[in-house]
Design a protein around this nucleic acid. Structure first.
Length: 634
DNA sequence: GTAACTGTTTATGAAG
DNA sequence: CTTCATAAACAGTTAC
């Protein structure tokens, strides 16, 4: 019965050869199926090498064209125009041109080209004017596809060509083409759940809503997947600490939310927009921050999902190469640009170790009921917010602060793994309300919104006590969580008895500097305080050990990026290398980063693409195109 | 009472 | 060894 699970490529650590010639690697290997699925020759073939085209997932009439810098834009435009004609009104006659100097990651919006139904070149606008750079365009989902399909197979046009039957996408001929929308999305359940939850304004969803959202956005689950996928969703919700179940005030409805500190606010359509303006300091989570309300944008009509994909094939393609990327949490730039000088370092309340940790936050009385299980030290370490948000998936890292609690019951040997990856298991620890670390975090939303959070983190930090600041709570500002569910296992959340006494969840660990500054944050304000090394003694795996640790070395993000340019995997020069070298201990951590970075990478790309206005930033970062550096990181 | 739903855990296997 | 997917056992709730 158990089918061999296919891990979502999103999680793969394998480095994808974006720029390499090994086009096959990406296309054939990972996507073999896909490539072949669309044998349809497409005009794409006519394009010069290096040009990649892919359908925009949510815009049926649009395709994205990644054009190497070297390519002759004019010729490309001409070709596209012709193509548009070919496709006719029904086809994809709009093209979003992206400049990809060397890799997708560097892609930048060149402009949009759309051909009238008639096929006439209508316009090519400067990106800024282009509608498309909106979320739908940059949506992660889409990029994911792009990266996988386009880039992965990039090298060969054939692939892209094949891949895009859509080149001349025949909207009406589903039979033939494999509907991408009905293919299993390259996202892990965890990611999809995040997308779903983040799609809601209040960032909370009932299980059913999550199901629905996923089905709506990923027809695969509605049309192809076995019913068991719901079980998997539930499983993931329970398994990952980042998902927190809360109940409505009346206690009748259970909502799933994402821990603010872990929430990168990834959404399918989301685009990170520079928080140029003052961001709400406290609640980055709130969409306002620049998130685009994805759902509004008109989610893809997945409904029309095509059965074509009946194949049980579940291979997923990698979204983007994440490998070395972890060194560069791209959000850095964001943060930088967004953030003001360290002036407002996020003050972390929780002391690293601490006992305090748990700040007695019990603060506000709240009505919400929180399921006990979820609680864990992690909460305590709300501090990590920033980092966590950035690398949320890192969870596995051991970081525990030691909250510990109650005696951890003997851990079943089997639980071993879980222990290790404590991050995963929820319900590890139940603390008395007073001790609960969790309490903190409700307030600690300080950094909550993931990606954005980075920036927000710093910016917002004005709060003396960020943690208290806010939860988006649209609902209850002061909610106190009451644990509803008895916790079964009292694993030592933090202090893992055995193996990992250390940090279980990096993101939980609050690497807060004493100063209250987020040291770990990759992003550093120029003047910002340095990372606090102090943490070192603490946990072997503390951030210090992590790549971030090195970050302080960089005076500026640029510097950081620059250094890291050489891909670690390749001959890595100094900086990157150092970063990477944390040693085995770090390893998991870094991996985590990498994994998660995947999404982040996308985000970053998005950032690049979607922030035409970035120039406005006076931060000085404006000039920098972070994306330019990205490729290097690989 | 039963079924369905929800949530938690455990187990297992594939892929990396 | 880790991560993820999948399956399934169980238990608690809720609806009929």
């Amino acid at each position: 019965m158990r089918e061999s699970p296919r891990r979502p490529i999103i999680l793969k650590r394998r480095k994808l050869p974006f720029q390499k010639n090994e086009s096959d690697a990406g296309c054939d290997e990972a996507d073999g199926p896909r490539c072949k699925t669309s044998p349809t020759p497409s005009t794409a073939r006519c394009f010069p090498d290096g040009i990649r085209m892919m359908d925009h997932p949510t815009m049926p009439d649009t395709q994205v064209v990644v054009i190497p810098k070297a390519a002759d834009l004019q010729s490309v435009i001409s070709a596209l125009t012709a193509k548009g004609k070919e496709c006719g009104p029904q086809g994809r006659n709009k093209f979003i041109l992206l400049s990809a100097s060397t890799s997708l990651e560097e892609s930048k919006p060149l402009g949009c080209l759309s051909t009238e139904p008639k096929g006439d070149l209508q316009k090519v606008k400067k990106e800024t004017e282009c509608f498309p750079l909106d979320d739908s365009l940059t949506n992660i989902h889409w990029l994911g596809k792009m990266s996988s399909d386009g880039l992965g197979s990039e090298s060969n046009q054939k692939c892209t060509g094949k891949d895009n039957p859509s080149d001349c996408h025949q909207p009406k001929a589903p039979e033939k083409e494999k509907d991408p929308l009905s293919e299993r999305p390259p996202y892990s359940y965890m990611a999809m759940i995040q997308f779903a939850i983040n799609s809601k304004k209040n960032r909370q969803m009932t299980l059913k809503e999550i199901y629905n959202w996923i089905e709506d956005h990923f027809p695969y689950f509605r049309n192809v997947a076995k019913p068991g996928w719901k079980n998997s969703i539930r499983h993931n919700l329970s398994l990952h600490d980042m998902f927190v179940r809360e109940t409505s005030l009346d206690g009748k409805i259970s909502y799933w939310t994402i821990r603010p500190e872990a929430n990168r606010c990834l959404t399918l359509d989301q685009v990170y927009k520079p928080l140029v303006g003052p961001v709400t300091p406290t609640c980055p989570q709130i969409p306002q921050v620049g998130f685009i309300q994805q759902q509004k944008r008109g989610p893809p009509e997945l409904k029309r999902a095509i059965p074509a994909m009946g194949s049980t094939e579940r291979k997923m393609k990698p979204l983007l190469p994440r490998t070395d990327s972890y060194l560069v949490p791209i959000q850095l730039p964001l943060g930088q640009s967004l953030f003001l000088p360290s002036s407002s370092p996020a003050t972390l309340v929780t002391p690293p170790h601490a006992p305090s940790s748990s700040t007695p936050s019990s603060g506000g009385a709240s009505k919400r009921v929180r399921i006990a299980p979820k609680v864990s030290q992690s909460d305590m370490s709300s501090v990590m917010l920033c980092a966590s948000s950035t690398f949320q998936d890192i969870k596995e890292e051991p970081a525990s602060v030691s909250v510990t609690p109650e005696a951890p019951e003997a851990l079943p040997s089997k639980t071993r793994q879980q222990e290790n990856s404590s991050s995963r298991r929820k319900q590890r620890l139940v603390l008395p309300a007073t001790e609960e670390p969790v309490l903190l975090y409700p307030d600690s939303t300080l950094f909550d919104s993931g990606v954005v959070s980075d920036a927000s983190t710093f910016q917002d930090t004005h709060d003396p006590e960020p943690q208290l600041s806010c939860k988006p709570d649209a609902e209850s500002p002061n909610r106190e969580y009451t644990f509803k569910t008895p916790i079964k296992s009292t694993h030592p959340s933090s202090s893992t008895p055995s193996k990992l006494p250390t940090v279980l969840e990096p993101w939980r660990i609050t690497p807060v500097g004493k100063g209250g500054v987020l040291d770990f944050s990759p992003i550093r304000t120029p003047s910002g305080p340095q990372l606090t090394p102090q943490r070192h003694g603490h946990t072997p795996f503390s951030f210090n050990s992590t790549p971030f640790k090195e970050l302080p070395l960089f005076s500026s993000p640029r510097e950081l990026l620059t250094c890291s340019r050489p891909s670690p995997r390749r001959s890595t020069p100094t900086c990157s290398r150092e970063l990477l070298q944390e040693g085995a201990a770090n390893r998991s951590f870094t991996e985590g980063l990498v994994l998660d970075t995947m999404n982040d990478s996308l985000s970053k790309i998005l950032v690049d693409i979607s922030f035409p206005n970035l120039e406005d930033d006076d931060l000085g970062m404006a000039n920098i195109s972070w994306s330019q550096f990205i490729p290097e990181l690989k």
